[in-house]
Nucleic acid binder design. Structure first.
Lengths: 340, 340
DNA sequence: GCTGGCACTCTGTCCGTGCGAGTGCCAGTG
DNA sequence: CACTGGCACTCGCACGGACAGAGTGCCAGC
C-alpha cells in the first residue's frame, strides 16, 4: 500500500522537524518543507490516522503534532537511516582518545568526547569486574594486622580493599602470601576465582592458613559485590541546554544520574550482538527517566563485552546521529582497551 | 556607637531573612520579625545608609533590600555565630563514613554526606599527590616491552601508568626492578622522589639501567603532573532546587563543575590554620561562579593537609550552618584517613 | 535621634481582546 | 476512490490597561 507508506513518510517528517525545531509541526509546514507530493489537507488525514494509532499527539487542540514515545520507537526501528559520522568527527574521536595514560583517563576522556559529540549527558560503565580476569594481586602491609589488597585486572581496572588479619604478620608472610595468591589467581576470570579458594586453602602452608582464609574471603567479597560497578558521568551541563524538554525540573533526572544504580542498570544491559539499544521515555520504566531516552551499546575488546556506554537525553533527540556516535565511540574504546 | 551597632544588627537580620525566604526584605517585615526595638521608619534610615555603603541593594525601586556580596562578606566575617551541628547530624556523619572500604569509597561517601547535610553541591579533592608519601610501588608486565606501574600512597590513593620499555624484559628483570624501586622510594614524600632518581640510577645494576631510567622518568612525570589532582563532585541535583538563584541558566555553573580545574583551584587553596574559607560571588573571580559561593576547608590527618573539600552554592546560602557542616565533615574524614 | 504619616513609585497580576496557527469536515474533481 | 481547496471553529498566546500591594523617601513633630 502506497497509502501506508506515505503515512510513515509523514511520521518520519514529523519526527525530523520536531527534533530540529522543537515546535509542534502542522500540516502546512510539513507540506512545504518535505516533498510528500500531496496537499496539506491530505496530510491532515494521515495525521489523524497516526494520532488514532498513537504515534503522534497534539499538545493543545489548535497546535501541531508531536511524536509520542511509540512514534519515536517506530522511527528508530523502521524509519531512520544510519547517519555516518563526518570525517572531522572520526578524527576528533581518534585525537581525543589517543594518549590516555590509564583506565580512569581513558574513561573520562571517553565520557567527555561522547558528551561533546552528542551534546547530551554521557555515561560510561567501568569494565565489569565479573567479565575481567586477574592480572596481578598485590598485598601491602599497612599495619601489624592490616593489609591492603590491590587487584589489577587485565582491563587495567584497579580495585583495593583493606583486610583485617586474624593475626599479626611479618614481611616474609606477606611476600609468601603475595606469591601464593598470584600463583593461584593470575589469569583466572574473576567469576571463577571463588571456586579456587578451597584449592588454595589446601595448598597453603599451615602457618599461613588463617591469613590466606581472611584475605581470600575479602577478595571474593570484592569480586561478587555487584554494587561495585562504577559509572563515569559527564556532560550534565548539556541538560541545561535542553531544560525546556523537561517540564518542571531537571532535578529528578540529575538525581537519577547521581544515584547511578538506575542508569547503571540501563547501560549495562547491552545487546549480545553488539547492536545499539535505544530506550525511549516510558520504556525506561523509571519515573525520573520518563521524558528521557537512553542510547547505549556494549564496548569491549574482541568478542568480550566489558561494559556499556551511552547517552541520556530528552526523547526529542536526533536518534540517527547519536546512535552513530555512540557506536563509533564504543568501537574506539574497545580498540584502545585491547591495546593497553 | 550604639548607632553603628544597630545598623549591623539590621544587616544581619536582612541576611537571615533573605536567606530563608528568598524575598527582598522590607523595613516593616524586619521590625515585625526581629526585636530591634525601633520602628520601621528608623530601620529605613539605617537601610539607606547600608545601601550607600554597598552592603545591600534593592532589585527594583519599590522592592525590599537584598544583601550584596559585600554584605554577605561582612555577615560572614563579623555577624555570624558558629552554629553547632545537631546530635542527629553528628551521628549521621559517623554512620555515613563508617564502614568505607577504600579511598574511593570514603571520598564518594563524603561527598554524598556533605551534599545531603548542606543541600548544596559538594566537592572533595583527592589527597594531593605532592603531600603524600610512597607506600608501595608495583610493577606488572603487560607485554614484552610494556609495564604497568602502580603507585600506592600512604593515603590509600592508587595511581597507575603505562610505561613503554626501551627493551624487552623478563620476569626476573621485573622482580628486580620492583625491589629496587621500593627500596629507593618507599616512605619518601612524593615531592622528594624526583631527587632520588640520580641516586637510583647509580646503584642500579648495568643490565637494568635503561629500564630503570624509563620507569623512573614515567614515575616522576606522574608525580609532577599537576593536572592529575582529581575532584569528586556530588549533589548537583541540589542545583535544580536553587535554580531560581541563578538567573538565566545553570549551565555555566554545571560546566565549571565539570571542568573541575576552576573549582579545584578554589578548593585546594586552603587556609594553613585550618579555618573554613568562604568565597562569595565575585570574589571567586570567575564568571560562571559570580552568583555562587564556595565554602571550603582543608582536611588531613594530624597536621598534614591532604586536600580540600567544600560546597558550592548560591551566594544566598545559610553560611553559619554550612560552614559548621563543612568543618565537621572535614574533621571526620581526616580521622578516617588517619586510621586506614 | 526616633517616630508616625503621607505621597509616590514600581512590580506583579488579572482580565479582556485580537491575532494566528492549526484542525476537522465537506463538497467537488480527476 | 483518493486527493484537494475552502471554510468555520477552537485554542493558545501576546498585548495592553487597570489595580492592588509592598516598599520607599521625606517631613514635621516629639
Amino acid at each position: 500500500m502506497a497509502h501506508d507508506e506515505r503515512r510513515l513518510q509523514v511520521l518520519r517528517a514529523i519526527v525530523q522537524d520536531y527534533v530540529s525545531t522543537n515546535d509542534p509541526v502542522g500540516s502546512k509546514a510539513l507540506a512545504e518543507r518535505h516533498d510528500l507530493g500531496v496537499s496539506p489537507a491530505t496530510i491532515r488525514n494521515d495525521m489523524a490516522v497516526l494520532e488514532e494509532q498513537g504515534y503522534i499527539t497534539q499538545p493543545h487542540t489548535s497546535a501541531g503534532r508531536v511524536p509520542t514515545d511509540k512514534g519515536y520507537r517506530l522511527f528508530v526501528d523502521r524509519l531512520s537511516a544510519v547517519k555516518p559520522l563526518s570525517v572531522a568527527e572520526r578524527r576528533a574521536i581518534e585525537r581525543f582518545l589517543d594518549g590516555a595514560l590509564d583506565l580512569h583517563d581513558i574513561l573520562s576522556r571517553t565520557v567527555r568526547l561522547l558528551a561533546q559529540l552528542t551534546h547530551h549527558v554521557a555515561v560510561v560503565q567501568y569494565p565489569t569486574l565479573s567479565r575481567s580476569a586477574v592480572r596481578h594481586l598485590e598485598v601491602v602491609q599497612v599495619a601489624a594486622a592490616r593489609l591492603l589488597l590491590v587487584l589489577i585486572t587485565d582491563t587495567g581496572r584497579v580495585e583495593q580493599r583493606l583486610v583485617d588479619c586474624p593475626v599479626d604478620c611479618d614481611g616474609d608472610d606477606v611476600a609468601e602470601l603475595r606469591a601464593l595468591l598470584n600463583q593461584t589467581f593470575a589469569g583466572t576470570r574473576l567469576t571463577d576465582a571463588a571456586g579456587r579458594v578451597p584449592d588454595l586453602l589446601d595448598t597453603a602452608p599451615p602457618h599461613l592458613r588463617r591469613l590466606v582464609a581472611a584475605v581470600s574471603a575479602a577478595l571474593v567479597e570484592t569480586l561478587v559485590e555487584p554494587g561495585e560497578d562504577r559509572l563515569v558521568v559527564g556532560g550534565t551541563a548539556n541538560l541545561a541546554r535542553v531544560a525546556v524538554d523537561f517540564p518542571g525540573s531537571l532535578r529528578p533526572l540529575l538525581e537519577a544520574l547521581e544515584e547511578q544504580v538506575v542508569v547503571l542498570r540501563l547501560i549495562s544491559e547491552v545487546d549480545a550482538g553488539g547492536a545499539v539499544l535505544v530506550r525511549i521515555g516510558e520504556e525506561n520504566a523509571h519515573e525520573a527517566l520518563s521524558g528521557a531516552s537512553v542510547v547505549s551499546v556494549g564496548y569491549g575488546s574482541g568478542d568480550r563485552a566489558l561494559g556499556g556506554l551511552g547517552i541520556v537525553g530528552p526523547t526529542r533527540m536526533d536518534y540517527p546521529t547519536n546512535m552513530a556516535a555512540v557506536r563509533a565511540v564504543a568501537r574506539y574504546v574497545g580498540q584502545i582497551l585491547a591495546e593497553s
